[in-house]
Nucleic acid binder design. Sequence first.
DNA 1: CGTCTGCTTCGACGTCGGTCGAACCAGAGG
DNA 2: CCTCTGGTTCGACCGACGTCGAAGCAGACG
Lengths: 128, 128
Amino acid sequence: MSKQERASATFGPVVGCCEPLVREPLSAEQSVELSRVFKAMGDPVRLRLLSLIASHVGGEACVCDLTDVFDLSGPTISHHLKVLREAGLITGERRGTWVYYRVRPDLLAQVSAVLAPAGCDELPVLDA
Amino acid sequence: MSKQERASATFGPVVGCCEPLVREPLSAEQSVELSRVFKAMGDPVRLRLLSLIASHVGGEACVCDLTDVFDLSGPTISHHLKVLREAGLITGERRGTWVYYRVRPDLLAQVSAVLAPAGCDELPVLDA
DNA sequence: CGTCTGCTTCGACGTCGGTCGAACCAGAGG
DNA sequence: CCTCTGGTTCGACCGACGTCGAAGCAGACG
């Protein structure tokens, strides 16, 4: 089972913790898992890629749409997409000539919940 | 005005964006700002430090409390605290012999809101 | 089959970042 | 003033990471 499959298997707590950061301290293992997600988002290009995919019409974006936005080579964009994929933040699917990426809103929601202040630990409702 | 001062000046949008990631794409500048925060949280030690400080009684923790938790040297812990400080996630204050750190819940709430799915863009209420 | 296009993988290069010991600074307490 | 303890800064080391061009792979299309 790959890292990506494990992350997308269920809707359960992917990042290994449900409670907000401010309520109780993270264990060493939880910190390692969660920090992987943050590290993936800790690059300007990747963060922008994520938002471009997330806000694209239809909820998905072709790689060719993304490459034009940046002044970077194709391999570099592909590398960043791979990092986001291995962090469980996006999924890629090939349809014919093109590859389409979409975000995993459940993981985004979980991370958002972990960061939320105490008293806001409810998982937001997904209207998708 | 230092980076830290700029981050703590007001309760306004510190990270340069208010809308959730999934609604509209981040600009290059917004991505750079936001990614700085995520990069700071993208290390297991720093993430755990953050949660230890945030969940500590009284909302603050002395450095001596934090050092014991990790199998790391003092300078290393100090380095990580500096990174978190420069990202605007925590503030430090010397009182006598000891230095106390506390989190900036407003920044945490903003980052949480940016990550939240569309339709959950309300800033959570701080009960502090 | 050949080729063209879209995307990924590979290998290399330069920079950044986490870690440590040593040195340094700030208060507290003789 | 001296010293002791708590933290930070400095300098060095080494592995991790972002970037690229070249090469490779997958479909589409003649």
